[in-house]
Design a protein around this nucleic acid. Structure first.
Lengths: 282, 282
DNA sequence: GCTTGACCTTATTGTAACAATAAGGTTTAC
DNA sequence: GTAAACCTTATTGTTACAATAAGGTCAAGC
């Protein structure tokens, strides 16, 4: 009988390592059919390859070794179809999650690309922006007080809500604050509302608003402390160019950076106000 | 200054656990901005939420904490696009792997379904089978000797080759042996060749053969020891019914079962021989 | 001032499936 | 006889925490 295969040969035969066989032995998944009582050397039978094949097969399908053990413990194949089906569902779910991750990565890459191409800070520009959809949340406290502290709290509340609504994580970085038209027309920058850009209108979610496609004046800004000053610049520009504020002021976070100081949020913002030509009446 | 948030509140604020914050502190990813020197109590700043946000963001994109640490160590955002791109490739690869797993699961489910519907063992049937493609390998030794031992060795060689050709793992279960027409016509069951069903012709791989669509006689069998006996049944049937062997004998493994005894391969096989009506000449 | 409950600390163990290593014994070939 | 190849057990490491234990701290109510 030459059917006494030492562990090294068994490993090579099955394209696995000795450690793997040790491990399977340890957890009681597959033990050698003979162990030399003096040396404790392990010896396998060629027929045990069938078992290893099956382990590999199930492992390939994403089962854990514990699950494989359970399958081996069964006396027949009746439970397999159900198991396979459950595993299929599980893999399907994992694929959906990965698809989400891919989307988040894509959005992140786009954000950084935008960041690299940002023209100049503090220069007013005019542009046409397409329609956008936002999910608005009123934090009831002015986000411009307490140098960011209130903003941080409200942002966290917004994200908690987004989690409840099961928004994809790719949304989490595209946030902003909104100052209503009546306020900004008085040259005041105060707001209790922040928002998150979303892809499509979720009709059953409260707080969804439409930013219509429109002509805008905009300016880039890379620190919170500058926002007020730059917003004034925008308003001055509007006045100087015979324009009129046509909607809410938006402060959009373009990209958030992992700044070397871990103690402050660092982001590039794009301030924007929709405008129209001043009506000649008056 | 009320900006001294104890660990429990910080955890709640960010929807994470205290352990997570402990862990981040331990690995040096994010340490509290103040530690009471007497009690060692940890206190965080609201501004550190930005850091946690970024950690979550990168984690969501599949980065490890070590990678996040590296990102934090960078002095600017220049390396991000490259990192994001690499991560995208990685996720893409993982998705492809999962797609493979799904396919394997689907094939496995089909195999078991087939198994459940298998008519009767040992009953000859006539049926029309569609074209199939196989990857053949000649092990140079008769697989019917040594009660399966040789078969096991040759099967392993076939799988090694399949790995080299990077065949999907879903192929690994659909194997079989082939006995050439000349041999089976002499009522002999000997063969040195086994094969694996494949999806499409890989023109650059040697050993690919086509089993043409044809009329077959077939019989199911659930143990190796019965194969010879059942093969004879097939041949007898052919003779009795005025038929003629029209091609190679195929022993197809329908499904392999995780039998309670771990010491022998247990499988359902379908033996099949292509036939045609006996030519009247002679 | 005391108790009670909520909160905090450090340290250890566990998770999955092995890989890597160390320190030592065995076998085989020359 | 010895060196190379092979085997053994035991320990540590991997990831991102969760769970637990044993103990100290804090704030509120009596």
């Amino acid at each position: 009988m030459r059917d006494k295969i030492p562990i090294g040969k068994m490993a090579k035969l099955n394209n696995i390592t000795i450690q793997t066989l040790h491990h399977y032995d340890k957890i009681g998944l597959l033990s050698p059919c003979y162990i030399d009582p003096e040396t404790n050397y392990r010896f396998y039978s060629i027929k045990q390859c069938a078992c290893l094949d099956f382990i590999k097969y199930l492992k390939n399908m994403g089962f854990t070794l514990q699950e494989v053990k359970k399958v081996f413990a069964e006396k027949d194949a009746d439970s397999m179809p159900k198991l396979l089906d459950e595993q299929f569902q599980l893999i399907d779910q994992k694929m959906n999650e990965l698809a989400q991750v891919k989307k988040t990565l894509k959005v992140a890459a786009e954000n950084y690309k935008t960041y690299m191409q940002i023209p100049k800070m503090g220069v007013v520009e005019r542009e046409y922006l397409p329609e956008r959809i936002i999910y608005c949340y009123d934090g009831k406290r002015d986000i411009y007080e307490d140098q960011l502290e209130t903003y941080e709290f409200i942002l966290r509340e917004l994200r908690d809500l987004a989690l409840i609504h099961q928004f994809p994580t790719s949304y989490f970085c595209n946030v902003g604050s909104i100052t209503r038209m009546e306020t900004i027309k008085q040259r005041k920058l105060t707001s209790t509302e922040i928002f998150m850009f979303v892809d499509a209108v979720c009709s059953d979610v409260k707080g969804i608003e439409l930013l219509p496609a429109h002509e805008y004046v905009s300016i880039y800004c890379d620190h919170f402390s500058q926002e007020k000053e730059y917003a004034i610049k925008l308003i001055d520009f509007i006045v100087e160019n015979q324009l009129e504020i046509a909607g809410d002021y938006i402060c959009e976070v373009i990209v958030e950076l992992p700044y070397w100081t871990q103690y402050e949020r660092k982001m590039i913002m794009k301030l924007q106000i929709p405008v129209k030509k001043k009506s000649t009446s008056a």
